[in-house]
């Protein structure tokens, strides 16, 4: 089963001779329960690709299918709802809401997605425990360490039980030990819950926790985009 399929996506910013090609005819597919690493230097277009996959960005051409839904065919409003319910995104800057506590940053998804508040709260408490944040749950982001904030962001991405998890540079501001911990955690959450996930990283040491690695350079996908080909 294909969890996600990106078909010939191109993303161009600007027009004429000032046009920037962030993505160029990128195609990639992901199987159920597969954890993919997307590797490339900065400026290679990996964040752009992730944004297109998550429905944050509309491609200039091409389509994205997640599960049974063609994301690129949905209206903006429908895409927003899709993101709320079916995609979990961990941003590069974590992007926690500063006036919500760790727990509230997760439970806010109850107001945003279609899940019942009860379900979300249960899952939030469970995740807080699994992520080692149980005694930090009432702290505001400014009171949390970088690693703790990272984990809250992961919790928020998981709390709606989405089909697809997208993670952008999870180890960027963490030391090696903490970074490894976090990626291991991600992998176990993704695998144990039967989800699919893509992790963007430039840290090659982290790819051992993933099933497959895809390289991207200057907007073009190089190796590993076809699951059958292996690495």
């Amino acid at each position: 089963m294909t969890a996600m399929f990106v078909d010939d996506v191109t993303k161009v910013y600007g027009e004429g001779h000032t046009a920037v090609r962030a993505l160029c005819n990128a195609s990639i597919s992901l199987r159920d329960n597969e954890f993919l690493a997307l590797v490339g230097p900065s400026g290679s277009g990996k964040t752009t690709l992730l944004s297109v996959i998550g429905g944050l960005l509309a491609p200039t051409s091409g389509s994205v299918v997640i599960g049974d839904t063609t994301l690129t065919h949905l209206s903006k409003k429908e895409q927003t709802r899709f993101r709320a319910n079916r995609v979990g995104f961990v941003f590069q800057g974590f992007n926690l809401v500063p006036f919500l506590t760790a727990r509230e940053n997760m439970t806010v998804m109850a107001s945003i997605s279609d899940n019942s508040r009860k379900d979300i709260e249960e899952r939030a408490d469970q995740l807080l425990g699994e992520l080692g944040l149980a005694d930090r749950s009432d702290n505001l982001p400014e009171q949390l360490s970088g690693g703790e904030r990272q984990r809250v962001a992961i919790g928020r991405a998981l709390v709606t039980d989405p089909d697809l998890i997208l993670v952008d540079e999870p180890t960027a501001s963490l030391d090696t030990e903490l970074g490894t911990q976090v990626v291991k955690l991600l992998a176990s959450e993704i695998k144990s819950r039967g989800k699919a996930g893509i992790m963007v990283t430039h840290d090659l040491r982290m790819v051992e926790f993933t099933d497959r690695t895809v390289e991207i350079l200057d907007g073009e996908l190089l190796t590993g985009s076809d699951p059958a080909a292996g690495d």
Binding site: G93, F94, L96, P98, L140, P141, E142, L144, G146, R149, S173
Partner: peptide
Amino acid sequence: ASALGGEA
């Protein structure tokens, strides 16, 4: 020092 931690 909180400036260096970046925004949450």
